[in-house]
Nucleic acid binder design. Sequence first.
DNA 1: TCGGCCCGGTGGTCTGACCAATGAGTACCA
DNA 2: TGGTACTCATTGGTCAGACCACCGGGCCGA
Lengths: 231, 231
Amino acid sequence: MSFASIPPMVRRSRSVGAEVAAHLERLITSGELRAGDRLPAERDLAASLNVSRASLREAMFELESKKLIERHQGRGSVVAEQPEGVSQLYEGLSELDVEIANATELRDLVEPRIAQLAAVRAADSNLLSLEEVLARSHEELSPEESLALDVEFHTLLAHAAQNPLLVTLCTMTTDWTRRTRELSHRTLEGRRISVSGHRAIFDAVVARRAVPAGAAMERHLREIREVSSRA
Amino acid sequence: MSFASIPPMVRRSRSVGAEVAAHLERLITSGELRAGDRLPAERDLAASLNVSRASLREAMFELESKKLIERHQGRGSVVAEQPEGVSQLYEGLSELDVEIANATELRDLVEPRIAQLAAVRAADSNLLSLEEVLARSHEELSPEESLALDVEFHTLLAHAAQNPLLVTLCTMTTDWTRRTRELSHRTLEGRRISVSGHRAIFDAVVARRAVPAGAAMERHLREIREVSSRA
DNA sequence: TCGGCCCGGTGGTCTGACCAATGAGTACCA
DNA sequence: TGGTACTCATTGGTCAGACCACCGGGCCGA
């Protein structure tokens, strides 16, 4: 097996540990090391690579975090089973998407509750403001106008829930998911769904029916998401 | 800043490095350490955490691979720019003058969902941390210790839900409702209820049963509130 | 045969030393 | 005066060696 020492020359761009990790990763992905193969003991491997055990361990940490190897105290380390292209999969999944997903998750949690509370607590003045926004909403508006009214509706609803924390959360999640919402307001269908969804929520709130209000909000969010995912 | 040493007692489930990494990650995602903050030098940090520099460096590798920190030879390490929102959420909510009732309302909303998501998403390491906290929890503890473990349990659970926004939210609501919680931990009954509630939540999470986990959390919050209202 | 003990191998952790990059303060010269 | 080059403390990077904790297998006695 070729655990040959790494050429000492050209090793100055990356750290020793990273260099070793890359070396071992190449051995694995190229097939020289197969799943289930036992790696030499850390002390031996470090010696054959002419690096300290500390650096070797740094490399091992990296490989382990990439699930390329498994380590077991007292037993040694083995090359892990490779669930088909793990390495690439690991790189993938844009962090941006993850963040949006997190924000969306929070929004899905908060908004229905806002609708419920608004149904219970909304003052007349809240209802008037909401009604006014709805009166200004129709599907012929430009995407920008439609989006602005959308934001306004949700913000006013949050105010109607009479909890400043929910207003803040609503504002922030609305902001973070802006891109998704922009997409959905681009199409006529998206604008139509937005308006009708708001209408349904408002009707439930006015009727002081908390549970239906929450349900209407859930449906609204789901529909909007479907539209924007098609766009 | 609370780089307080990690409780040395029951630390045998995970490696020292992993433990330190989890500790620091909690400080970061919960907002105690903010983006741009400089970390103490490795030697100093290792000393304040009562671990060797080697173990600390293992933790640093892990945090770096998660892009939570950046390290620069000769300059030190800093907390990396946070994934969209977390710091924003933290700042936005910090500025508010929060009424306890509002915070409680938000907590009742967020925590059950956290429990549900944790049941679905918790990694083995999350479960280990939670189990360890439970192992350290019993009703004979002092009110302060009991409260600290309570906070830790909920924070770890939020981490298990794998959404940094929820971690931040959990941290903040926990902080706001601190006085209520202090009351409930003063009595033996309160501590007993706390522990048994956590146990029930944990069991549901381990069993990967989302809905029961959420229900257990709701019950837990309700019981705690009843105890503290009687106090 | 079976159970417990011991022991070698392996990863886990710690210590302390030295190397190398960085940047700020300082002395020097044009 | 201004800029340049140097010095040096600080900090991460690497190394060597020691000891601990865990695992598994072999040995030995019941």
